[in-house]
Each structure stands twice: as structure tokens, then as C-alpha cells.
Design a protein around this nucleic acid. Structure first.
Lengths: 191, 191
DNA sequence: TTGTCAACTTGACACAGTGTCAAGTAACTC
DNA sequence: GAGTTACTTGACACTGTGTCAAGTTGACAA
């Protein structure tokens, strides 16, 4: 890949990871990438697309597809559910910074919202697959419809919840995964 | 109360309720209140404090203290938990607009963040009281420490989760309350 | 050697939104 | 009639985004 472009993306990523969120300005990224602010616009048309490109870059670097294999290969729905939670739950800290920035742009920029909505839709698909596997085994709770179960699991696994527990309440990443897995089992698995 | 001041707060509230969130500008509020933009600054020093005042105004209008009585008077922890969830859960839609705006200001403005953090701390106290009642009855789950139980309940009841389920996934308010009550019981009540 | 092209730089500017300041006005009160 | 309060109008500083125009620099080619 274009070396300047990847230097920009790396800089954006590390600045966002420091928790700046929406406070990370184009000029900050430019400075970190040792480039003029205007030169950023030679590579990305605007801030939103830079952020979107940053999430894609992070996915590439971490080979997210590979990570998902483990949970897809689970034999039963009951095994798949905690594996999926572990996989996604452990990926959250990585994309938290960019996610925060994209969410913060929110209303203001449609592209940014669309990008984040897209990514969250992908997560929802992961949830749907886990729930479907559970249902196929006849182990899905009767208390919720399949759709509702997907909605709830997706909500349970939201970036906001991770941030509140791990950043706000000081939970360790391990404890977060453990507890979330237990909650999911208790509320979604029959019996 | 000062009639202009309350006209401003009403205008701010209704604009925020329409879902504008951070997109609601000072000039929009001024226009809605039929006042000049500059006159807003005669009543509120800045946007953050106007938003904060708006939340307080909403609380006053809805007499939130009164609403809380029901759950406080519950005989047992097991009764108190669903009552608390119902009370707070049904209040969320009311403050959602302002909350969204305050959250969106986030990083940018310390006052705004502080104000929202304050309000969420109050909710956490409600959660803590419910959990404490449960523990006093010896009905708190063994799987979580008391602190963890409070953190989790607080997270479960977050505005973000309500928004995701009721605004994003199209759940009805009633179903949201029902399901949340069930989840809380299954994961926090022993046996 | 000269020409050209791409990547980048510097500097200026338009635009939106917040917050400030100064001067003026209209009504109500003493 | 003087002063006070609540408000108005208009101008302006500041921050951050995005645009534009005119250079500079280095590499590669004829």
C-alpha cells in the first residue's frame, strides 16, 4: 500500500486509540503523520472517510476474518455462543477509539454514521448466526423470539456496554468476557 | 419561574425530543423561543449549561422524585427490582433527546460530560439500592459480587441499550420493560 | 540536459457555529 | 423624567473543516 497513506492511517489509529475520540482533529493526524494538513485531503476527501478507512485498515491488520473461524467451527450452538462472545468481545478494545469518533460524528455526517452502522450490522450477523445455531439445536430459550434473542445479544455485546463496564467501572477484559458469557447463557439457552 | 427562561427550556426540550441531538444549535433554540440568539446568553452562560438546565427542568415537570416512591416502598428486594426497572425504563424516552445531546457534546465540553455523568450516577444509586435490597433478602446471585451486580444492572439499564432496542430494533416500550425485567431476574436473583 | 509528472508544501480563504462586546430600544417603576 | 431590566441589532474573535492557487522537490524519460 501507498506508504504515506498507511502512515496516515497508523497515525489516525494511534491517536484515536489514546481515547481522543471526536477531539482528534485533522491537523493532529497530519502532524502525527509528518505531513501538511492539506496533504491529508490528497488522500482522503474528508474526515469521515479517513475514519472509515481507518476501521478497514484495523480490520486488515488484525485479520478479523481469521479470528471468526474458531466460533464458526464450533460443533454445537451452546459452544458457539461463548466463542463468538469471546471473539467479538476481545476485538472491541481494538476498534473502540475509532468507533467512538465515528459515533461522535453521528448526526453531523451521514457517511460516518453509515460506516459505523455497517460495521454494527456485521456484528449483528455474528449474533444471528450464534442464535440460529442455538435454535437449530433446540436450545434457544422460549422466553424470546429468535429475532428478539438476536437483538438482545447484539445489545448485550454493544461497544457502549463494553466501555461502560471496562472503562467506566474498571472491569478487567477477562472478567467482562466471563460475565457476558454467563449472562448470555443464562438468558438465551434453554434449561 | 421566569417566563422567558421557561419558554427557552421548553423550546430546547421539544427540539431535542425531535431527535436532533447535537444538531440542535443555539440559534434554533432561540428561534423556537422567539428570542434573539444573543438573548439566550443572558439566561445561560453557554450551550452546556442550557442543556443541563433542560434536564433539570424535565425532572421537575415529571416530578421524578414522586415516581421513585413506588419502588422504594417495595417490601422485598425481589419486588423492588422490577419496579425500579419499570420506573427508570419508562423515564428514559423522556430524557433521551437531551441525553443524546449531552453525550454527543462529550469530550468537547467538560460541563456537559459532568452533567450527564451526574445524572447517570443517580441512576446507579437506584441500581445499588435495588441490589442492596436483594442482598439483604439473601436473594442476590452468587455469580457476581455486589459491586459487579450493580455495575451490570446499571449497564443493562443504560440509555444506549434502550435506544438500540426501542429505536434501532423497533421494540415496543412494554416489551423492553418486560424483557429487561426478566433478564435482570434471571441473572441477578438467586435460584 | 531538459521536460514532465506526482507528491507534497505554504498560504490564503469561505463557511458554520460558539461565545463576546457595544450600542440602542422599549417598557415598567420610582 | 430618570433609572433599571429585558431584550434587540450588528459586529467580531475563535476554532475546525474543507477548498483553491501557486510554488517546490525528486524521480524518471527522451
Amino acid at each position: 500500500m501507498n506508504p504515506t497513506r498507511s502512515r496516515i492511517l497508523k497515525s489516525a489509529w494511534s491517536l484515536l486509540e489514546e481515547g481522543g475520540g471526536n477531539a482528534v482533529r485533522m491537523s493532529d493526524i497530519a502532524k502525527a503523520a509528518k505531513i501538511s494538513r492539506q496533504a491529508l485531503y490528497l488522500h482522503f476527501p474528508n474526515r469521515a472517510e479517513l475514519l472509515v478507512a481507518t476501521t478497514k485498515y484495523i480490520d486488515e491488520v488484525h485479520d478479523i476474518q481469521d479470528r471468526l473461524k474458531a466460533s464458526r467451527n464450533a460443533a454445537t450452538g451452546e459452544e458457539r455462543l461463548p466463542l463468538w462472545i469471546e471473539t467479538w468481545g476481545n476485538y472491541i478494545p481494538t476498534i473502540y477509539g475509532v468507533g467512538k469518533a465515528l459515533i461522535a460524528m453521528g448526526e453531523a455526517d451521514e457517511d460516518a454514521t453509515a460506516a459505523w452502522t455497517d460495521r454494527m450490522a456485521a456484528v449483528k450477523h455474528g449474533c444471528a448466526a450464534a442464535i440460529a445455531a442455538l435454535k437449530a439445536d433446540g436450545r434457544l430459550t422460549e422466553a424470546l423470539s429468535e429475532t428478539e434473542a438476536v437483538d438482545f445479544l447484539w445489545t448485550l455485546l454493544s461497544v457502549g456496554n463494553w466501555a461502560q463496564l471496562c472503562q467506566g467501572c474498571g472491569w478487567s477484559q477477562e472478567r467482562y468476557i466471563e460475565v457476558t458469557q454467563r449472562i448470555a447463557r443464562e438468558t438465551l439457552v434453554r434449561g
